[in-house]
Design a protein around this nucleic acid. Structure first.
Length: 265
DNA sequence: ATGGCAGTACTATACTGA
């Protein structure tokens, strides 16, 4: 089973890229999208359904938005934190549409778009930290029902210096501060492991490149799009690869897809 | 140190991203 994650930075602008990528990658069973940037009623649903895909979307106007696009039906799809956690605990953390989840082949798959955080100590930064705290509660709830869990998406955090092209300023930079890293590690302490680092110990492999400063051609990137899995799935992980091809196209997303392959039972 | 590039909403420029 192959599961891909891709922040498309607007599904309407990247519709042709997304459809072409799915056509080029027929063995990908599930594509997890982030930053669809569209209300559900305007999502280009039929473009995917006409191509034979099953679709689950959780979006909003202008910002954020996540989607699950699969070749076979998903089970038990949950929208937002409130799909799992009581609303009084969720509070304002579902106002931004950033999490969607379903089950495929017995594996609970969680697709997240973690807040960017803007600047360290800003209001958005503290929202990011609160969001990550609730993410742990949300995952704990899933784990009581599903021992096999995969969480993927745009985490907006580079956990190690090797994940950044230039780590010199990383301590004061959003996405790489110690506090953000600790917040993500606290989530991962539930027993989640990075599938990419099961295979690749070298640097210079990134999933996002800034549109500015010719970052892509200089390979001045960050690895911020991840797949984390529970122990049993980690043993079943056959590969985790970054596909840089869509980033080379005209009018690309600033992120590129990352694909994990799990051995079937 | 600053801005750079892109998408959305809107229709000039602000907000957001990372």
């Amino acid at each position: 089973m192959k599961i891909a994650t891709w922040n498309v930075n607007s599904i309407r602008t990247r519709l042709a890229h997304s459809l072409q990528w799915l056509e080029n990658n027929p063995d990908v069973d599930l594509l997890c999208l982030q930053e669809t940037k569209v209300p559900d009623e305007v999502f280009p649903r039929s473009a995917f359904e006409d191509a034979g895909f099953h679709l689950h979307i959780f979006g909003q106007k202008s910002y954020n938005g996540v989607a699950l696009i699969s070749r076979s039906p998903l089970e038990d799809v949950r929208l937002g934190f409130a799909g799992v956690i009581p609303p009084e605990i969720v509070g304002d953390l579902d106002d931004q549409k950033r999490v969607i989840s379903g089950v495929l082949n017995g594996v609970r798959i969680v697709n997240v778009y973690v807040p960017n955080g803007s600047e360290i100590e800003s209001e958005k930064y503290h929202y990011k930290l609160r969001w990550l705290k609730l993410l742990k509660v949300y995952l704990e709830d899933h784990l009581t029902r599903s021992p096999d869990l995969l969480i993927c998406g745009d985490f907006n955090i580079a956990l190690e210096d090797i994940d950044i092209h230039n780590p010199k300023t990383r301590a004061t930079h959003i996405m790489s501060s110690d506090v953000e890293r600790s917040a993500l590690r606290e989530v991962l302490s539930l027993g989640l492991q990075d599938t990419f680092r099961k295979f690749a110990q070298d640097g210079n492999q990134y999933s996002w490149w800034d549109y500015r400063s010719a970052s892509f051609v200089r390979n001045a990137g960050w690895r911020i799009d991840h797949h984390y899995v529970t122990d049993g799935l980690y043993d079943r992980t056959l590969s985790c690869t970054i596909d840089p091809e869509p980033r080379k196209l005209e009018q690309p997303s600033d992120h590129t897809p990352v694909i994990v392959e799990l051995a079937n039972l």
